[in-house]
Amino acid sequence: MSTQKALYVPSKHAPFQLGEAPIYTPGPKEILVKIISSALNPVDWKIPAYGIFVENFPAILGSDLAGVVEEVGSEVSKFTKGDRVLFQGWFGDNKYAGFQQYTLVEAELAAKLPDNISFDQAASVPSALTVVILTNFNHNPTAPTANFTAPWEEGGKTKYAGKPAFIVGGSSSVGQYAIQVAKYSGYSPIITTASLHNEVLLKSLGATAVVDRKLPASAIISEVQKLAGNKPIEYVFDTVSIADTQSLAYDVLAPGGTLLILLNDEIPAEKKNAADNKRIVHGFGSARVSQNREVGVQLFSRLTEWLETGVIVPNQVEVLPNGLAGIPDGLERLKQDKVSGKKLVAHPQETP
Protein backbone atom coordinates (compact mmCIF):
# COMPACT_ATOMS: atom_id res chain seq x y z
CA MET A 1 0.00 0.00 0.00
CA SER A 2 1.30 3.47 -0.90
CA THR A 3 1.90 5.78 2.03
CA GLN A 4 2.10 9.52 2.63
CA LYS A 5 3.29 11.89 5.35
CA ALA A 6 0.76 13.05 7.92
CA LEU A 7 0.71 15.15 11.10
CA TYR A 8 -0.98 13.33 13.98
CA VAL A 9 -2.32 14.08 17.42
CA PRO A 10 -1.25 10.69 18.85
CA SER A 11 -3.56 10.75 21.89
CA LYS A 12 -5.74 13.16 23.85
CA HIS A 13 -3.71 16.22 25.01
CA ALA A 14 -0.57 14.91 23.24
CA PRO A 15 1.66 17.16 21.11
CA PHE A 16 1.64 16.84 17.32
CA GLN A 17 3.83 14.19 15.75
CA LEU A 18 4.77 13.47 12.13
CA GLY A 19 4.04 9.99 10.84
CA GLU A 20 2.74 8.05 7.88
CA ALA A 21 -0.77 7.34 6.62
CA PRO A 22 -2.09 5.29 3.72
CA ILE A 23 -3.05 6.99 0.47
CA TYR A 24 -6.78 6.47 0.36
CA THR A 25 -8.99 5.10 -2.42
CA PRO A 26 -12.00 7.29 -3.27
CA GLY A 27 -15.49 5.89 -2.94
CA PRO A 28 -17.93 6.16 -5.88
CA LYS A 29 -18.92 9.76 -5.05
CA GLU A 30 -15.54 10.92 -3.76
CA ILE A 31 -12.34 12.38 -5.15
CA LEU A 32 -8.77 11.87 -3.96
CA VAL A 33 -6.93 15.19 -3.74
CA LYS A 34 -3.21 15.89 -3.57
CA ILE A 35 -3.15 18.69 -0.99
CA ILE A 36 -1.10 21.70 -2.08
CA SER A 37 -2.23 24.15 0.63
CA SER A 38 -3.64 23.45 4.07
CA ALA A 39 -4.68 26.42 6.23
CA LEU A 40 -4.61 26.55 10.02
CA ASN A 41 -7.55 27.33 12.32
CA PRO A 42 -7.75 28.04 16.07
CA VAL A 43 -9.66 24.79 16.60
CA ASP A 44 -6.55 22.91 15.47
CA TRP A 45 -4.64 23.96 18.59
CA LYS A 46 -7.67 23.80 20.88
CA ILE A 47 -8.34 20.10 20.15
CA PRO A 48 -5.04 18.82 21.63
CA ALA A 49 -4.81 21.57 24.27
CA TYR A 50 -8.29 21.06 25.72
CA GLY A 51 -9.01 17.48 24.68
CA ILE A 52 -12.22 18.48 22.88
CA PHE A 53 -14.18 17.30 19.82
CA VAL A 54 -12.01 14.29 18.93
CA GLU A 55 -12.22 10.93 20.71
CA ASN A 56 -10.53 8.57 18.23
CA PHE A 57 -6.72 8.63 18.13
CA PRO A 58 -4.27 8.92 16.53
CA ALA A 59 -6.11 11.79 14.84
CA ILE A 60 -5.32 13.96 11.83
CA LEU A 61 -6.71 17.49 11.97
CA GLY A 62 -6.96 20.26 9.34
CA SER A 63 -10.10 21.48 7.61
CA ASP A 64 -9.19 24.21 5.07
CA LEU A 65 -7.77 22.70 1.90
CA ALA A 66 -6.87 23.25 -1.73
CA GLY A 67 -5.14 20.94 -4.14
CA VAL A 68 -5.21 18.90 -7.34
CA VAL A 69 -7.57 16.03 -8.12
CA GLU A 70 -5.54 12.83 -8.24
CA GLU A 71 -8.31 10.26 -8.73
CA VAL A 72 -12.10 10.36 -9.09
CA GLY A 73 -14.73 7.89 -7.91
CA SER A 74 -16.75 5.85 -10.37
CA GLU A 75 -19.87 8.06 -10.13
CA VAL A 76 -18.11 11.44 -10.23
CA SER A 77 -18.65 13.54 -13.35
CA LYS A 78 -18.04 17.01 -11.90
CA PHE A 79 -14.24 16.64 -11.74
CA THR A 80 -11.41 15.02 -13.65
CA LYS A 81 -7.82 14.27 -12.71
CA GLY A 82 -5.75 17.45 -12.67
CA ASP A 83 -8.56 19.83 -11.69
CA ARG A 84 -7.66 22.49 -9.12
CA VAL A 85 -10.12 22.35 -6.20
CA LEU A 86 -10.88 23.76 -2.75
CA PHE A 87 -12.94 22.12 -0.04
CA GLN A 88 -13.51 21.68 3.67
CA GLY A 89 -11.75 18.85 5.45
CA TRP A 90 -13.21 16.84 8.32
CA PHE A 91 -11.24 15.95 11.44
CA GLY A 92 -13.67 13.28 12.63
CA ASP A 93 -12.26 10.73 10.16
CA ASN A 94 -8.58 10.74 9.19
CA LYS A 95 -9.15 9.97 5.52
CA TYR A 96 -11.04 13.28 5.13
CA ALA A 97 -8.65 15.46 7.18
CA GLY A 98 -6.19 18.06 5.97
CA PHE A 99 -2.84 17.83 7.76
CA GLN A 100 -1.54 15.20 5.33
CA GLN A 101 -0.41 15.04 1.71
CA TYR A 102 -3.52 13.36 0.22
CA THR A 103 -7.12 13.28 1.38
CA LEU A 104 -10.64 12.42 0.26
CA VAL A 105 -13.68 14.65 -0.18
CA GLU A 106 -17.18 14.06 -1.47
CA ALA A 107 -17.36 15.64 -4.91
CA GLU A 108 -20.54 17.61 -4.17
CA LEU A 109 -18.72 19.41 -1.34
CA ALA A 110 -15.79 20.66 -3.44
CA ALA A 111 -15.44 23.51 -5.92
CA LYS A 112 -13.09 24.20 -8.80
CA LEU A 113 -10.57 27.02 -8.37
CA PRO A 114 -10.90 29.82 -10.89
CA ASP A 115 -7.65 30.90 -12.54
CA ASN A 116 -7.51 34.16 -10.54
CA ILE A 117 -7.21 32.35 -7.18
CA SER A 118 -4.05 30.61 -5.90
CA PHE A 119 -4.03 27.41 -3.87
CA ASP A 120 -2.89 29.37 -0.81
CA GLN A 121 -5.68 31.92 -1.13
CA ALA A 122 -8.23 29.16 -1.72
CA ALA A 123 -7.24 27.31 1.45
CA SER A 124 -8.33 30.34 3.50
CA VAL A 125 -11.92 30.07 2.33
CA PRO A 126 -13.80 26.82 3.06
CA SER A 127 -14.37 26.55 6.82
CA ALA A 128 -14.77 30.25 7.61
CA LEU A 129 -17.10 30.95 4.70
CA THR A 130 -19.04 27.74 5.39
CA VAL A 131 -19.79 28.67 9.01
CA VAL A 132 -20.98 32.12 7.92
CA ILE A 133 -23.27 30.70 5.22
CA LEU A 134 -24.65 27.88 7.36
CA THR A 135 -25.31 30.03 10.41
CA ASN A 136 -27.13 32.66 8.35
CA PHE A 137 -28.98 30.74 5.65
CA ASN A 138 -29.58 27.10 6.53
CA HIS A 139 -33.33 26.37 6.40
CA ASN A 140 -33.15 22.96 8.05
CA PRO A 141 -35.26 23.24 11.24
CA THR A 142 -32.96 20.85 13.11
CA ALA A 143 -29.86 22.97 12.43
CA PRO A 144 -28.48 25.88 14.49
CA THR A 145 -29.37 28.68 12.07
CA ALA A 146 -30.82 32.15 11.84
CA ASN A 147 -32.82 30.92 8.83
CA PHE A 148 -32.39 34.18 6.93
CA THR A 149 -33.19 34.45 3.23
CA ALA A 150 -29.97 33.88 1.26
CA PRO A 151 -28.86 36.43 -1.35
CA TRP A 152 -29.20 33.77 -4.07
CA GLU A 153 -32.84 33.16 -3.09
CA GLU A 154 -35.82 35.22 -4.19
CA GLY A 155 -35.81 38.57 -2.39
CA GLY A 156 -32.56 37.80 -0.61
CA LYS A 157 -30.66 40.79 -2.02
CA THR A 158 -33.34 43.33 -1.05
CA LYS A 159 -34.86 42.00 2.18
CA TYR A 160 -32.07 43.33 4.38
CA ALA A 161 -31.08 46.35 2.26
CA GLY A 162 -30.40 49.44 4.34
CA LYS A 163 -30.41 47.59 7.66
CA PRO A 164 -27.28 48.05 9.79
CA ALA A 165 -25.05 45.09 10.62
CA PHE A 166 -22.49 44.85 13.42
CA ILE A 167 -19.69 42.29 13.12
CA VAL A 168 -17.37 41.73 16.07
CA GLY A 169 -13.84 40.71 15.07
CA GLY A 170 -13.80 41.78 11.44
CA SER A 171 -10.14 40.95 10.83
CA SER A 172 -10.52 37.30 11.86
CA SER A 173 -10.91 34.85 9.01
CA VAL A 174 -14.60 34.33 9.81
CA GLY A 175 -15.01 38.07 10.33
CA GLN A 176 -13.73 38.87 6.85
CA TYR A 177 -16.22 36.50 5.25
CA ALA A 178 -19.02 37.72 7.54
CA ILE A 179 -18.41 41.24 6.23
CA GLN A 180 -18.53 40.07 2.62
CA VAL A 181 -21.69 38.01 3.12
CA ALA A 182 -23.36 40.93 4.90
CA LYS A 183 -22.48 43.12 1.92
CA TYR A 184 -23.83 40.46 -0.49
CA SER A 185 -27.07 40.43 1.51
CA GLY A 186 -27.44 44.20 1.24
CA TYR A 187 -26.88 45.24 4.85
CA SER A 188 -25.79 48.85 5.28
CA PRO A 189 -23.96 50.28 7.08
CA ILE A 190 -21.67 47.37 7.99
CA ILE A 191 -19.79 48.22 11.17
CA THR A 192 -17.03 46.06 12.58
CA THR A 193 -14.49 45.99 15.39
CA ALA A 194 -10.82 45.31 14.67
CA SER A 195 -7.33 46.66 15.21
CA LEU A 196 -7.14 49.86 13.21
CA HIS A 197 -4.14 48.67 11.16
CA ASN A 198 -6.65 46.38 9.40
CA GLU A 199 -9.06 49.21 8.53
CA VAL A 200 -8.09 49.54 4.85
CA LEU A 201 -8.37 45.78 4.32
CA LEU A 202 -11.79 45.51 5.96
CA LYS A 203 -13.21 48.49 4.10
CA SER A 204 -12.02 46.91 0.84
CA LEU A 205 -14.11 43.85 1.74
CA GLY A 206 -17.26 45.85 2.39
CA ALA A 207 -17.07 47.30 5.89
CA THR A 208 -18.48 50.81 6.12
CA ALA A 209 -16.66 51.65 9.35
CA VAL A 210 -14.06 50.04 11.61
CA VAL A 211 -14.16 50.69 15.36
CA ASP A 212 -10.99 50.16 17.40
CA ARG A 213 -11.45 46.88 19.26
CA LYS A 214 -9.22 48.18 22.07
CA LEU A 215 -11.75 50.82 23.15
CA PRO A 216 -13.79 50.20 26.30
CA ALA A 217 -17.08 48.41 25.63
CA SER A 218 -19.12 51.50 26.50
CA ALA A 219 -17.19 53.57 23.95
CA ILE A 220 -17.63 50.89 21.26
CA ILE A 221 -21.38 50.71 21.89
CA SER A 222 -21.72 54.49 21.67
CA GLU A 223 -19.67 54.69 18.47
CA VAL A 224 -21.53 51.81 16.81
CA GLN A 225 -24.91 53.36 17.56
CA LYS A 226 -23.74 56.67 16.16
CA LEU A 227 -22.38 55.05 12.99
CA ALA A 228 -25.69 53.22 12.54
CA GLY A 229 -27.50 56.55 12.58
CA ASN A 230 -29.24 55.38 15.76
CA LYS A 231 -31.18 52.81 13.73
CA PRO A 232 -31.92 49.59 15.63
CA ILE A 233 -29.16 47.03 14.99
CA GLU A 234 -31.00 43.77 14.54
CA TYR A 235 -28.13 41.78 13.02
CA VAL A 236 -24.98 41.12 15.04
CA PHE A 237 -22.35 38.44 14.31
CA ASP A 238 -19.74 37.87 17.02
CA THR A 239 -16.98 36.01 15.18
CA VAL A 240 -14.76 36.00 18.30
CA SER A 241 -17.39 34.74 20.74
CA ILE A 242 -15.48 34.94 24.02
CA ALA A 243 -17.32 36.16 27.12
CA ASP A 244 -16.39 39.85 26.73
CA THR A 245 -17.27 40.07 23.04
CA GLN A 246 -20.56 38.21 23.50
CA SER A 247 -21.56 40.66 26.22
CA LEU A 248 -20.67 43.61 23.98
CA ALA A 249 -22.54 42.10 21.02
CA TYR A 250 -25.64 41.44 23.13
CA ASP A 251 -25.65 45.03 24.40
CA VAL A 252 -25.47 46.40 20.85
CA LEU A 253 -28.26 44.10 19.61
CA ALA A 254 -31.68 45.72 19.40
CA PRO A 255 -34.77 44.02 20.87
CA GLY A 256 -36.13 41.50 18.38
CA GLY A 257 -32.74 41.11 16.74
CA THR A 258 -30.49 38.10 16.14
CA LEU A 259 -27.00 37.50 17.53
CA LEU A 260 -24.85 34.86 15.84
CA ILE A 261 -22.10 33.31 17.97
CA LEU A 262 -19.62 30.48 17.32
CA LEU A 263 -18.80 29.30 20.84
CA ASN A 264 -20.96 28.45 23.86
CA ASP A 265 -23.26 31.19 25.14
CA GLU A 266 -21.45 33.12 27.90
CA ILE A 267 -23.76 36.13 28.09
CA PRO A 268 -24.52 36.93 31.74
CA ALA A 269 -28.01 35.82 32.73
CA GLU A 270 -28.74 39.21 34.27
CA LYS A 271 -28.41 40.84 30.84
CA LYS A 272 -31.14 38.67 29.37
CA ASN A 273 -34.72 39.87 29.50
CA ALA A 274 -37.29 37.67 27.79
CA ALA A 275 -39.30 40.74 26.86
CA ASP A 276 -36.40 41.93 24.66
CA ASN A 277 -36.89 38.90 22.41
CA LYS A 278 -33.21 38.81 21.48
CA ARG A 279 -32.45 35.61 19.57
CA ILE A 280 -29.07 33.89 19.97
CA VAL A 281 -27.90 31.41 17.32
CA HIS A 282 -24.86 29.22 18.08
CA GLY A 283 -23.45 28.32 14.66
CA PHE A 284 -21.79 25.07 13.62
CA GLY A 285 -19.67 25.06 10.52
CA SER A 286 -19.39 21.65 8.90
CA ALA A 287 -21.15 21.18 5.57
CA ARG A 288 -20.60 17.43 5.82
CA VAL A 289 -23.19 16.67 8.52
CA SER A 290 -26.67 15.79 7.30
CA GLN A 291 -28.50 18.81 8.72
CA ASN A 292 -26.13 21.18 6.92
CA ARG A 293 -25.49 19.30 3.71
CA GLU A 294 -28.17 20.85 1.48
CA VAL A 295 -26.97 24.41 1.97
CA GLY A 296 -23.36 23.19 1.91
CA VAL A 297 -23.91 21.72 -1.56
CA GLN A 298 -25.49 25.03 -2.64
CA LEU A 299 -22.48 26.93 -1.32
CA PHE A 300 -19.88 24.82 -3.14
CA SER A 301 -21.92 24.86 -6.36
CA ARG A 302 -21.71 28.68 -6.35
CA LEU A 303 -18.24 29.19 -4.89
CA THR A 304 -16.25 29.09 -8.14
CA GLU A 305 -18.32 31.93 -9.59
CA TRP A 306 -18.16 33.95 -6.36
CA LEU A 307 -14.36 33.74 -6.32
CA GLU A 308 -14.10 34.49 -10.04
CA THR A 309 -16.30 37.59 -9.84
CA GLY A 310 -15.06 38.94 -6.50
CA VAL A 311 -18.25 38.38 -4.51
CA ILE A 312 -15.93 36.49 -2.16
CA VAL A 313 -12.32 37.61 -1.71
CA PRO A 314 -9.98 35.19 0.11
CA ASN A 315 -7.97 36.11 3.19
CA GLN A 316 -4.43 37.37 2.90
CA VAL A 317 -2.07 34.50 3.68
CA GLU A 318 1.33 33.72 5.14
CA VAL A 319 3.01 30.47 4.09
CA LEU A 320 4.75 28.50 6.82
CA PRO A 321 8.09 26.77 6.17
CA ASN A 322 8.73 23.01 6.30
CA GLY A 323 5.34 21.76 5.20
CA LEU A 324 3.46 19.74 7.81
CA ALA A 325 6.41 20.08 10.21
CA GLY A 326 5.82 23.85 10.37
CA ILE A 327 2.21 23.56 11.51
CA PRO A 328 2.80 23.19 15.30
CA ASP A 329 4.77 26.47 15.45
CA GLY A 330 2.05 28.18 13.42
CA LEU A 331 -0.64 26.91 15.78
CA GLU A 332 1.35 28.20 18.73
CA ARG A 333 1.31 31.67 17.13
CA LEU A 334 -2.46 31.42 16.79
CA LYS A 335 -2.72 30.34 20.42
CA GLN A 336 -0.63 33.34 21.50
CA ASP A 337 -2.84 35.69 19.42
CA LYS A 338 0.14 36.71 17.28
CA VAL A 339 -1.67 36.52 13.92
CA SER A 340 -3.83 39.38 12.64
CA GLY A 341 -5.70 39.87 9.40
CA LYS A 342 -4.22 36.87 7.58
CA LYS A 343 -4.39 33.09 7.37
CA LEU A 344 -1.45 30.79 8.05
CA VAL A 345 -1.00 28.15 5.34
CA ALA A 346 1.21 25.05 5.12
CA HIS A 347 2.34 23.16 2.02
CA PRO A 348 2.13 19.44 2.91
CA GLN A 349 4.11 18.41 -0.20
CA GLU A 350 7.12 20.38 1.15
CA THR A 351 7.38 18.30 4.35
CA PRO A 352 11.03 17.28 4.92
Rank of each mutant, 00 (worst) to 15 (best):
E154D: 11
V54M: 03
I117S: 06
V345L: 14
F300W: 09
P58R: 04
V297N: 03
S2F: 12
T80S: 13
A228W: 08
Y177V: 06
V125R: 03
A254Y: 05
R333Q: 07
I220T: 05
E332M: 09
P114Y: 12
Q121T: 09
V295M: 13
Y8F: 15
Y50C: 00
G175I: 02
V211R: 10
R84F: 01
A287V: 15
S74I: 10
N230C: 01
V68W: 03
L18F: 11
E332K: 15
R288A: 15
L129S: 07
A161E: 13
L303S: 14
K29T: 13
T135N: 07
W45Y: 12
E108R: 06
A346C: 08
S185A: 15
H13Q: 06
L129F: 12
V72Y: 03
A325I: 03
K81M: 00
M1N: 13
T130L: 01
N56K: 14
K157D: 05
R293F: 07
A14D: 12
A209R: 09
A161S: 12
V9H: 04
R213S: 12
G51W: 02
N230V: 01
K214T: 15
K112G: 11
E270Q: 13
Y8V: 04
N140M: 01
S247R: 14
Y96S: 05
R288G: 14
I23N: 07
L201C: 00
M1K: 07
E154K: 14
D115T: 11
A110Q: 06
A122T: 08
N264H: 13
